[in-house]
Computed example of a mutant assay.
Amino acid sequence: MAVVLSLNIAQRTVPVDYAREGATGIDKRPVDGPLEVRAPGAKSSGVSSSGVIGSGVVGDAIADKANHGGDYQAVYAYAREDLDWWQAELGADLRNGQFGENLTTRGIDQTHARIGERWRVGTALLEVTAPRIPCRTFAGFLGRQGWVKRFTEVARPGAYLRVLEAGLVAAGDEIAVVHRPEHDVTVELFFRAVLTEADLLPRLLEAGDSVPPEVVDLVHRRTAV
């Protein structure tokens, strides 16, 4: 059975010199739940009509709202299995939430999840929309030289999710895959298409409106599709 091991949030942003906005909310820590998850609105709007700022997890702080949060990046999930792999690779302990994920999971393969796949988590319905793209804030937080390159090479990016039905989520909740699209556009394929294999970009359109609009625009710009 796939489960949520921990629900993680940043209760405030922290000033740092390695982040674009001069602050970051990447340092997420496990909290006692449940917490509400809901659609936060368009990424660039800052505050949506529902009054939620940035993150889809109520109470979670985000500093760079132009590049993080919003409907298509409302919730970030990362697998404990992948954290354990990195733990062995780096020779360092990695706690739940260490990669800035809201949901640390066990028992679900995020790398090969399909874009548009839907998960029932607690009372919320979430949809897989995109991989995490590594940035300098991620590298700076971990304090690892060459981290962006290494994370890209390994291609275990975790999955961003949008909220189709608001609800409550807590550690221990089962993750049930309730819909899997017929296409084969996976999180890994999406990741490689954007970062290392541009010839794959047109295939992202097979996933329809589950793909973030800015990525659809990117595909059109790069391929004239």
Results as ranks from 00 to 15, higher is better:
residue 215 V to T: 10
residue 10 A to E: 04
residue 45 S to K: 15
residue 61 A to M: 12
residue 205 L to G: 07
residue 158 G to K: 01
residue 33 G to S: 15
residue 93 D to I: 08
residue 127 E to A: 11
residue 14 V to A: 04
residue 122 G to L: 08
residue 189 L to S: 07
residue 25 G to V: 05
residue 200 L to P: 06
residue 4 V to M: 10
residue 178 V to S: 06
residue 166 A to G: 08
residue 42 A to Y: 13
residue 128 V to S: 03
residue 52 V to W: 07
residue 100 G to N: 07
residue 24 T to I: 01
residue 45 S to I: 14
residue 122 G to C: 09
residue 30 P to C: 15
residue 180 R to G: 08
residue 73 Q to N: 12
residue 89 E to R: 14
residue 25 G to K: 07
residue 191 F to G: 00
residue 186 T to I: 09
residue 83 L to V: 05
residue 97 G to R: 06
residue 168 L to T: 02
residue 163 V to K: 04
residue 82 D to V: 10
residue 220 H to Y: 10
residue 158 G to A: 04
residue 161 L to S: 03
residue 176 A to D: 08
residue 207 A to T: 07
residue 139 A to H: 00
residue 199 D to W: 10
residue 53 I to Y: 14
residue 52 V to N: 10
residue 100 G to E: 03
residue 164 L to F: 03
residue 129 T to I: 06
residue 117 E to G: 11
residue 17 D to E: 13
residue 137 T to V: 02
residue 49 S to F: 14
residue 89 E to W: 09
residue 110 Q to R: 01
residue 127 E to R: 10
residue 121 V to D: 04
residue 205 L to Q: 05
residue 217 D to F: 03
residue 35 L to I: 15
residue 155 A to M: 02
residue 120 R to A: 14
residue 30 P to S: 14
residue 166 A to Q: 06
residue 117 E to P: 10
residue 17 D to K: 00
residue 220 H to P: 03
residue 155 A to F: 02
residue 163 V to H: 03
residue 79 A to Q: 10
residue 41 G to Q: 14
residue 128 V to Q: 02
residue 84 D to V: 13
residue 70 G to T: 09
residue 155 A to G: 04
residue 119 W to Q: 09
residue 5 L to H: 08
residue 71 D to R: 10
residue 181 P to T: 08
residue 220 H to E: 08
residue 139 A to M: 01
residue 12 R to S: 15
residue 103 L to M: 12
residue 3 V to L: 11
residue 202 P to V: 10
residue 200 L to H: 06
residue 183 H to R: 09
residue 218 L to F: 09
residue 212 P to E: 00
residue 117 E to D: 12
residue 14 V to L: 11
residue 139 A to L: 01
residue 180 R to F: 05
residue 96 N to D: 15
residue 78 Y to S: 08
residue 104 T to P: 04
residue 46 G to T: 13
residue 94 L to I: 11
residue 33 G to W: 13
residue 24 T to H: 01
residue 142 L to I: 04
residue 104 T to A: 13
residue 155 A to H: 02
residue 201 L to G: 07
residue 176 A to I: 10
residue 130 A to E: 09
residue 166 A to E: 08
residue 117 E to M: 12
residue 190 F to V: 06
residue 202 P to K: 08
residue 1 M to C: 10
residue 20 R to K: 15
residue 121 V to M: 11
residue 13 T to D: 01
residue 75 V to Y: 05
residue 9 I to P: 05
residue 112 H to V: 07
residue 122 G to M: 09
residue 178 V to C: 06
residue 82 D to A: 12
residue 20 R to D: 00
residue 110 Q to D: 05
residue 19 A to T: 09
residue 108 I to D: 07
residue 131 P to K: 03
residue 152 T to Q: 01
residue 62 I to E: 01
residue 152 T to W: 00
residue 146 G to S: 04
residue 170 A to M: 02
residue 173 D to T: 06
residue 186 T to M: 06
residue 203 R to N: 07
residue 33 G to Q: 14
residue 174 E to D: 05
residue 142 L to Y: 02
residue 206 E to T: 07
residue 28 K to F: 11
residue 50 S to M: 12
residue 34 P to D: 14
residue 222 R to P: 02
residue 66 A to H: 13
residue 186 T to G: 09
residue 186 T to Y: 06
residue 179 H to E: 12
